[in-house]
Design a binder for these strands. Structure first.
Lengths: 205, 205
DNA sequence: AGCATTTTATAACGGGCGGTACTGAATCAA
DNA sequence: TTGATTCAGTACCGCCCGTTATAAAATGCT
């Protein structure tokens, strides 16, 4: 019983994700969110709770919808292809909509206090991704894909660092091709084959 | 004539720099600044003007005091040593005080609107640094230090991207040694000699 | 139809922010 | 000493933010 909800929760969450992605957590006001979601402010509270809760829901959607290629990339046969797909996929997503978009998972790490739950959630995901890549590279060492002398942890950190750096570049207005130049150099130094952009430039949707 | 100023402008500016570095532009309130500078709010306005003007003054101080190693690095004899000093110096500074400090020039790029004068100033400095490095690498190609086939612009972007990525890592709590692992891999791929940390780990002050 | 219940929309509250009058105190010229 | 001028500190203003009370509109059960 009772009145029915007049807006679609999922599409409203996508609109909120878009706003948070572009403006960041602190930069996105309820006015921005309400307008983009086409929902009056109390409706947002009723459906999602806090601003913080709304951001965490949007972050979950972001991870499943836009960061899925990272976990998929881990299943590539060689470490080179894994890293290639991670780096090119990151460059694609960070420049896919407007320029100056960047990575939602990185944009709010640099702001906020130390024990901010928002920051904690972002860092937790980043840490999980890095250890997953670390393990994947250890596997590559076992398989002989990477030399036994390779520092798997350092390489994983290197890839994640480069991803974050590209996110800053993208937020600063770098084009996709500019990011690809960075990726090219990073991949040229990897023990394996060369980059083939066409393999990974359309794996976004 | 008139009453004399009772605080030292320079040390107050350093205190402001410290606050902005740690908390970012938006994150630093006048309460924080006033407390750290030991100057009441109207005194700050009288001495420096706006919050924006204060930040720009602090940014200038940051560049001259903490980013000087970058322009110095360009004078190293080989491109490898140039990049080595830039990357190691960045890792040093980003983790020199507390952890979770990062780079003041990067922290506020990800926040703020598109045409924010703060963001413009940060991006301008970053662009200047990148083109300076680009020119230096072109020179290295002329000198035969880098192969003629090298993409100097892409390499310069690569170095700047890595620097920014490490800034995010540092803000997320990475230690100096963790950043050095990233630097090691980046340098291992550079056409030239290997990294010697002792050369660059004390060039901060 | 009539009531309970849930959603909607307007409007407001408390708090923190950047910025500023205003009152005293300190300094220097005359 | 007097007075003009500049700094110091308290207290305040207007604004925007996240959040919530409130009342009207819409639904389903009986």
């Amino acid at each position: 019983m009772g009145r029915h909800r007049e807006f679609d929760t999922e599409s409203a969450l996508e609109a909120a994700l878009s706003v948070f992605w572009k403006k960041g957590y602190k930069g996105a006001s309820f006015g921005d969110l309400s307008e983009a979601m086409k929902v009056a402010r109390p409706g947002i509270y009723a459906a999602f709770g806090n601003k913080e809760a709304l951001f965490l829901r949007a972050l979950n959607l972001y991870i499943t919808k836009y960061m899925g290629f990272m976990t998929e990339a881990l299943e590539e046969p060689t470490s080179f292809q894994v890293v290639e797909r991670i780096l090119c996929g990151s460059a694609d997503i960070q420049t896919m909509i407007s320029s100056t978009q960047g990575c939602m998972g990185t944009n709010d790490v640099l702001a906020g206090s130390e024990d901010d739950p928002i920051k904690r959630a972002l860092l937790r995901w980043r840490a999980e991704m890095e250890t997953a890549l670390h393990k994947r590279l250890e596997l590559a060492k076992d398989q002989g894909d990477l030399p036994a002398s390779a520092n798997a942890g350092g390489l994983a950190r290197f890839v994640m660092t480069l991803t974050q750096g590209m996110a800053v570049d993208a937020k600063a207005g770098a084009t996709r091709d500019a990011l690809y130049e960075v990726v090219d150099h990073a991949l040229a130094t990897w023990p394996g084959r060369r980059v083939d952009r066409s393999l990974v430039s359309d794996n976004v949707a």
